[in-house]
Simulated scan of single mutants.
Amino acid sequence: MDNATRYLVPTGIEPIMNKILNLVPKVGISVAGGRLLAVRGRQSGQWRTTLVNVMTAADGQRYLVAPRGHTQWVRNLRAAGAGELRLGRKTETFTATEVADADKVPLLRLYLEKWGWEVGKFFDGVTKDATDDELAAIAPGFPVFRLA
């Protein structure tokens, strides 16, 4: 699969589990930093939501990483340039800037350190212990956004 278009569609029981897990932040519970990402659809203009892990780097900057690749939420966020992070009744608006592939290596490593237990299966055997070259090789397949 081409890294530039890599998209792992949820299969089997995953769509059902995703619907259930999306309810958790709606009631105000954050598991491992999870938030409900809301982004306007690039064609419909309707709000679309999905559960995401908000990652905070050592410098305090926050990021979203797309472990399944160039998903619909990624495409919508690229088009909208902004969205909301929701947890219960709290809503935080943000703008997003996509991170260049050359700058993703430390971010992918940190993401795998924090959530490899949850999303490792989407990384095709690449772990937090991978070399910089290995992480750089997969970087195009994993969109990353800096939040402001």
Results as ranks from 00 to 15, higher is better:
M1C: 05
D2H: 11
D2L: 13
N3Q: 13
N3K: 07
A4F: 14
V9H: 05
P10V: 06
T11G: 15
I13M: 14
I16W: 12
I16E: 06
M17Y: 09
K19M: 14
L21Y: 10
L21K: 09
N22V: 12
L23E: 10
V24R: 06
K26Q: 14
V27T: 08
G28A: 07
I29N: 07
S30A: 08
G34L: 12
R35P: 02
L37S: 05
A38H: 08
R42L: 06
R42I: 06
Q43K: 11
G45C: 04
Q46Y: 06
W47I: 11
T49K: 12
T56D: 00
A57W: 00
G60M: 02
Q61P: 00
V65L: 14
P67N: 06
G69P: 00
H70S: 04
T71I: 03
Q72G: 05
Q72P: 01
Q72M: 10
W73I: 04
N76D: 15
R78V: 14
G81E: 00
R86Y: 07
L87H: 00
G88H: 06
R89N: 13
K90G: 08
T91V: 11
T91R: 15
E92N: 04
E92S: 09
F94S: 02
A96P: 02
T97L: 07
T97H: 07
E98M: 09
E98A: 11
A100V: 08
A100C: 05
D101A: 14
D101G: 03
A102R: 15
A102Y: 05
K104Q: 13
K104T: 08
P106V: 08
L107Q: 00
L107E: 05
L108H: 10
W115E: 12
W117V: 14
K121C: 11
K121V: 13
F122P: 01
F122G: 01
F122V: 04
F123P: 03
F123N: 03
G125D: 13
V126I: 14
T127V: 11
T127Y: 10
A130R: 03
A130W: 02
T131Q: 07
E134V: 01
E134F: 03
L135E: 04
A137T: 01
P140T: 13
G141A: 04
P143R: 07
V144K: 04
F145A: 02
R146L: 04
R146H: 01
L147M: 10
A148F: 03
